[in-house]
Design a protein around this nucleic acid. Sequence first.
DNA 1: GTTGAAAAGTGCTGCGA
DNA 2: TCGCAGCACTTTTCAAC
Lengths: 161, 161
Amino acid sequence: MKNSEVKKGINSEIDKLDLDILRILMDNADTPFTEIAKTLVVSGGTIHVRIKKMKDMGLIKGSYLSIDPQKIGYDVCAFLGIYLEKGSQYHDAVESLKKIKEIVEMHYCTGAYSIFAKIICRDTNHLREVLNENIQAVKGIQRTETFISLEESIKRQIELD
Amino acid sequence: MKNSEVKKGINSEIDKLDLDILRILMDNADTPFTEIAKTLVVSGGTIHVRIKKMKDMGLIKGSYLSIDPQKIGYDVCAFLGIYLEKGSQYHDAVESLKKIKEIVEMHYCTGAYSIFAKIICRDTNHLREVLNENIQAVKGIQRTETFISLEESIKRQIELD
DNA sequence: GTTGAAAAGTGCTGCGA
DNA sequence: TCGCAGCACTTTTCAAC
């Protein structure tokens, strides 16, 4: 069976053309199909089929607008290392933390902290409010360590090979 | 001068309609203008003008495809707390770290670590390689602490008010 | 699976209110 | 400043290769 390699799993179905399309779209999701087609020297129909395939696979989750939070008054970005009293309180703590709008990213991690969160606030006062009133009030949270970002030196997507 | 409020600064030019448009587009950048227009009960032309304004202002930086890194074989996400020998080595270290493709986000922070980075790798072996061969080799880096993400419980955009 | 062209839908621009 | 209408462009579909 010669084509068994192609059918063995969902990952193997991604070929060079798919990755080329992804690379262009990750850079600018507004790129017209016709332009991608010209760049990669295939027809517009093919681009359409491939993108549909990747969407169906769940590889492409959607396209989102990138905005500048500072331009709408969100100036402070910080990372939070959160210590839980017991590891078993993780699920309850996560549910409570999800309700805090200022938290934009959260991970359950190995190492010193149980939970690692990224938070975006208007200013340092707003950050203090969220920390003292919202986060410290969550049941199971022992204490937190705050790392305020003074400069975002890198912000990019993963590079495909 | 009655309309002085409208002209006093770039931030003041954002009104409720702009924020409503942003909210819809941040959720799904592919939403057709006509659909936004229907939802917000204004004309398509108005949507066009407002979006152009926000792009010109730099509020909208672009639209990017959201992909699932696990589906293309990137399974490990980790955070790195990096200690520098001296704070003055920050700029040189950043330049070296920018060349490491696996680093997707990096911040200059207050607190215990000088630099905070987010890194995405294929597997734990790949992570070990990048840590030992690429990151530890950067001049000025004293040591690093690694927090491997076992679960990404929140990943969202900032909520507009 | 890929192509190319035709059909359907979306975005852009200028005139009128 | 907004809305409408026509034009240009993009996306989608489909028969044929």
